[in-house]
Nucleic acid binder design. Sequence first.
RNA 1: GUGAGUGUAGCUCAACUGGUUAGAGCAUCGGACUGUGGAUCCGAAGGUUGGGGGUUCGAGACCCCUCACUCACCCCA
Length: 447
Amino acid sequence: MTDPEKPGLRAPLQAIRGTHDILPAEARRWQAAEAVCKSHFELYGYREIRTPVFEPTELFVKGTGETSDIVTKEMYTFTDKSGRSLTLRPEYTPSIARAILEHRLDLRPEPLRFYYIGPMFRYDKPQKGRYRQFHQADVEVFGEADPAVDAELIEMAGSLLEKLGVEDVEILVNSVGCPDCRPAYSHALREKAEASRDEYCADCRRRIELNPLRLFDCKVERCGELSRGLPLVSDFLCPACAENFAEVRRRLDACGLRYRVEPRLVRGIDYYTRTTFEIVNSSAGRQNAILGGGRYDNLMKTYGGPDIPATGFAMGMERLLEAARLEIKPENFVFIAYLGEEAKNRAAWLARIFRSGGVECLLEFKDRGLKAQLSRAARLGASFAAIVGQDEVRNGRLVVKDLSTGSQFDEPVAWLEKEGEAEAALRRLFSKSSRPDFWPPAKEAKP
RNA sequence: GUGAGUGUAGCUCAACUGGUUAGAGCAUCGGACUGUGGAUCCGAAGGUUGGGGGUUCGAGACCCCUCACUCACCCCA
């Protein structure tokens, strides 16, 4: 029976397409993954940088590239009240370049090694592993042209995924050459493909003119066969690029990393030069690239900045979380149960003592029976229940129940009087439990 | 942007070919047990069947539109 007066429980609004709420249980996993990423990046001398989520539209048009898919059809662009065109960042690299120029970070002594974890926005059609608001961990090195940096980056990416428990990964590396050697290659590709034009699928026929490098990506069987007969970038690299790529591989070999040279690996953003790489999860669905990156030595110049080489990668957090095996700390807290109005006040004060001692505790003000409270404590995964009832208030004692063993112990406590003594009493009390180390060690007194 | 599939309670799913008041398990809350926990039993609450329109005496089911999700294309993280 529906009461027409009663508003429906269904939410009148919902998260917009391609965006998601990350609920607490899932947020725990994000926190764990982010913590691993951050500490890993810091180990290599990277430091966090944070830039705005929206930027002037021109930043991406210039940097990401006027002809790229991202800029031509995937940007969240809007006009603000001043009439200026702004864009929610679809990727992070242009923002970093902008920040470096704006603050002339290149003139400072600190290394230009940055990382960031945050949301990006692309107006794509959502599917598994692809969302309109998604998150990337992004890493950038500016000012270091040495191929050893590329190798170090790739090694860092590989060891990060290992730390995160991602299995079935494959590291693919390639070199797409520089503006000197790429045109010759594109030309050769086009010429060769044109010869057997009729055998290609409709998409590929279009690719021949538009972006011949993408011919390698086609999933149509016949196209795949044909693409095996196409010339490879490696045969067209200029001597400098060839030597550069060889050096990257030597460095990778030197650190014992397992990788595969994939001459057909091309990347979709216009600014890439020389090294490109990708780490794919071979057991995932179609959107299986967890991480991708490469070198972009000319990006700074396109912004009219100094000639600063750069390299980096971006990792899709959603795709990572899908594949990562993360260790989540189990719940570890005290549930405070109280009985009666007087005990309610005492319980609140007791909670303060726990918390000031660094012990997490939960106190729900619902005036329920002890049974209901204990039942709830157990279901929520509390380690201990502290019971504050009329008796305890009267006797100046506190009862603590170890919920894993069921054993119960109590102690005369000073919490009715002095806070300092209360903490000592509580420590004493927990030292009798099955987990004498439960209460965190006292902080060193400040000198 | 293109194509295909799916939407029933918070979750997982029922409801024979269109037929009366849309059911169950789990979860939630309460009680049995008025101060001792994940068990058991009993009970309650929870739905405009994603939304709107149409066909029909009658729609959760059929048709159209729309929204969302899923998978693939495209592209990318």
